[in-house]
Design a protein around this nucleic acid. Structure first.
Lengths: 136, 136
DNA sequence: ATTATAGTCTATGTGTTTGGTAGGGTAATT
DNA sequence: AATTACCCTACCAAACACATAGACTATAAT
């Protein structure tokens, strides 16, 4: 399951994608429209900024905005950043790989099945971008 | 990610499937072969028994064994039992559904994408059984 | 320069889950 | 009597989830 934080991140990005090229958007506006606790959202947006997905402007007329074109931000990237591994097991994760202690990966039935699951999922989230999440 | 508990459950079941029709298997044997902390495993096997997947016999010559044919126990069932929802969001879960507070499911882009992910995953884990996990 | 705006940063809190360890006693079977 | 599952309590450390509060700092308009 995705954490609340991840859901919020995706929702917020969907909104910012929708508002793309319309200038900075207030944290408060996003919080209101997407029903996200404001201070919680603050931290999430900052994380997305530090990762280079968002950029921000302070002062009047400031706010957050996408640092890239919505089509250039993959859903998979956001999930990995905010939520962590997409795979069901560390031993089949591409970005968070950790060796499995109680199986030899060369012939582990569970391992093989989980690779299939991972690929089925990646096949979707690696292809989808913020364009697919655009929403008011 | 699957919890350790879930990994252990699947590993143990794979072993019991491998030993199917060879009489009860000691908890200690499973723990040893699959490198699972014994007391932890104890609880897991009990849970699987209460769910009707395993059966057990006490006393000398006792142990745990599959209550059903390995081909009749779906991987999806085990994951739902021990790990919880397979879907990435509560609002797209079939067995653990919970309404989403910050979207109207009729037209929520995230919702739709997560249904796709769910189905891609289910397409695998609903078809695989303990036969596919059989392993010494 | 001042002031309001709006993002940034740090700290704190509470509760839950995870992944164990340790020990005991009970009930059934051989 | 020995074996083995069953069932219970207690404890622990660490992480995670989901926030809230307050102070600080940069920006821009006046």
């Amino acid at each position: 399951m995705l954490s609340k934080r991840s859901q919020y991140a995706l929702k917020a990005l969907g909104y910012l994608a929708y508002k793309y090229d319309q200038g900075p958007v207030l944290i408060a506006e996003i919080a209101l429209k997407k029903k996200i606790p404001l201070k919680f959202l603050e931290g999430i947006l900052l994380e997305l900024k530090l990762a280079g997905i968002l950029d921000s402007k302070k002062g009047k007329g400031g706010g957050y905005y996408l640092a890239k074109h919505p089509g250039d931000v993959k859903v998979a990237t956001v999930i990995r950043l905010v939520n962590g591994p997409i795979a069901m097991l560390p031993c089949v994760s591409l970005y968070f790989y950790k060796r499995c202690e109680n199986c030899n990966e060369k012939r582990c039935a569970l391992h093989d099945m989980m690779i299939e699951v991972r690929d089925a999922t990646l096949n979707i989230v690696e292809k989808r971008t913020l364009i697919d999440l655009m929403e008011s």
